[in-house]
Amino acid sequence: MTVNREIGPGVFSVGVIDWDRRLFDELIPLPDGTSYNAYIVRGDEKNALIDSADPPFAEALLENLTELGIDRLDYVVAHHAEQDHSGSIPAVLERFPGAKVVCTPRCRELLSILLDIPEERFMTVEERSTLSLGGKTLEFLYTPWVHWPETMVTYLREEKILFSCDFFGSHYATSDLFADPKIIYEPAKRYYAEIMMPFRAIIRKNLEVVDSLEIKMIAPSHGPLHDDPSFILEAYRDWSSEEVKNEVVIPFVSMHGSTRLMVDHLTDGLIARGIGVRRFDIAVSDVGKIAEALVDAATLVLGTSTVLGGPHPNAAHVAFLANALRPKTRFASIIGSYGWGGKTVKAIQEAIPLLKVEVMEPVLAKGLPTAQDYKALDRLADEILKRHQELGIA
């Protein structure tokens, strides 16, 4: 779907909405679709396209430019080399042979590799350098690891618009141009969890860069725009902080019911102790929801059946995912059931070397949980409460 809309004097949204996409990177579920936002900034002397679109939507993007009456394009600003933003650049350069790709030196290297763009078509920019379009000034700010090493953002000084690429985005297909905070909070948090959370410390540094600007609008590369920047900025400060909440996330898989009985008992025990619980049956749950729950939970308890002497593959996948996302979770434990033995605990602990967590005593039952196993789960609930109280969150 193609839509042209003016977001400021001489500034237009020209991206496309991908209503039907349900998987990103062959990994991330997209329950609400997504968009590939691109923007035109028209100056008195020159025109600039900010980002492009995923390759299958190249023709739609070009159609948008035609409908807007863009017959000359001087610059294509490439914030980030990943193809959902840059993939249509070759088609744009073919249509506009005089256009230059404006990017960081590292982005130039990646675009050369990924898209085979000729060296002479690039114009690299340094940190805080500017580009005048005639009455419109683009200022470029480096924001590495949001979420690739080459990423930058662009600030339109006159209109005080921040074109933020993946920063502050959301995978959310909508006809609304601007974000409703009540609706977009969850998609934006999920997006942060899946894409930004591994770089939490760097995100905080890049927020300082953004805070140096007077911003009236944030225009990301996915999802609706923010005409109330304070909402999304405050959310990012919260998510990227080291503050955790009095919550336990319990992803679990139970093959024959024993692990589920243990999860039920622990869930009830935690609730009785005033601790919030987010639990997920891994077999039917969206991994994006699990990632979102991990953004600010203090504790992770992974429940798993035993398969051939080790954790269930679905539980192992969640452990791998948590390790990759590196949430600020402080504590972790493992509960589950086995038949004749195995190395479930050792395998899961080896799968999470990047998690900076204190691992509490696991609880593994042989077959159906016994009265002793339930007492061990009660002790685990007590230990979680104690740790949360020590943090001052319970």
Rank of each mutant, 00 (worst) to 15 (best):
V244A: 01
P251H: 07
I275A: 00
A272D: 11
A351N: 08
G288E: 08
L294A: 04
D281F: 07
A291T: 11
H265N: 05
G223F: 09
V287Y: 11
D227Q: 09
V277N: 00
L266K: 01
V244D: 01
K245A: 07
H312W: 15
R273W: 07
I335C: 05
S230I: 14
F252C: 02
V253A: 07
G310M: 13
Q349C: 10
S305I: 14
V359G: 00
V287T: 10
M255N: 08
L355Y: 05
G257F: 10
P353R: 13
S240Q: 12
S254L: 05
V284I: 12
E361G: 03
H312F: 10
H317M: 12
R273E: 03
K289P: 01
P353S: 15
V359R: 02
I290A: 01
D281C: 05
E358T: 09
I290W: 03
R278E: 14
R326C: 08
T267I: 05
V253C: 02
A316L: 14
F320H: 12
K328C: 02
D264F: 11
A235S: 09
P362I: 12
G310S: 13
G276C: 02
R330E: 04
A322F: 05
F231V: 13
S337F: 05
G288K: 09
V263N: 00
L354T: 11
G309T: 14
P229H: 10
L300D: 02
S240Y: 11
V244L: 04
I334N: 03
S305G: 06
T299M: 01
T259I: 09
R237N: 07
E292P: 01
S240V: 12
R237D: 12
G309F: 15
E243P: 02
G269Y: 08
I275L: 01
A347Q: 11
N314R: 14
A347M: 15
V301A: 03
R330L: 10
S337D: 04
N246F: 07
R260K: 09
R278A: 13
L321F: 08
V295C: 09
H226M: 12
M360P: 00
T267N: 03
H226I: 09
G341V: 13
P229E: 11
G309L: 15
A316T: 09
I348G: 00
R279D: 03
E242I: 13
V253I: 11
S241F: 14
G274V: 04
E247A: 02
S240R: 07
G288N: 05
F231L: 08
A235Q: 14
T344R: 05
K289A: 15
S221T: 13
I334S: 03
V244C: 03
V253G: 01
K343Q: 03
P313F: 11
K289V: 12
S221L: 06
V359F: 13
L308D: 15
A297L: 06
V287S: 05
S254H: 02
E361S: 06
M360L: 15
A322I: 09
T304Y: 06
S333P: 04
E358I: 15
T259P: 02
P327N: 09
A347C: 08
S258E: 04
N314M: 11
E243W: 12
R330C: 02
T329S: 02
R279Y: 05
R330A: 04
S305K: 02
V263F: 04
P311R: 06
G309E: 14
R330F: 10
T304N: 01
I271V: 10
Y236A: 08
L302I: 13
L266S: 00
P327Y: 15
D264I: 11
A347L: 14
L270K: 01
L266T: 00
P313N: 08
D227L: 09
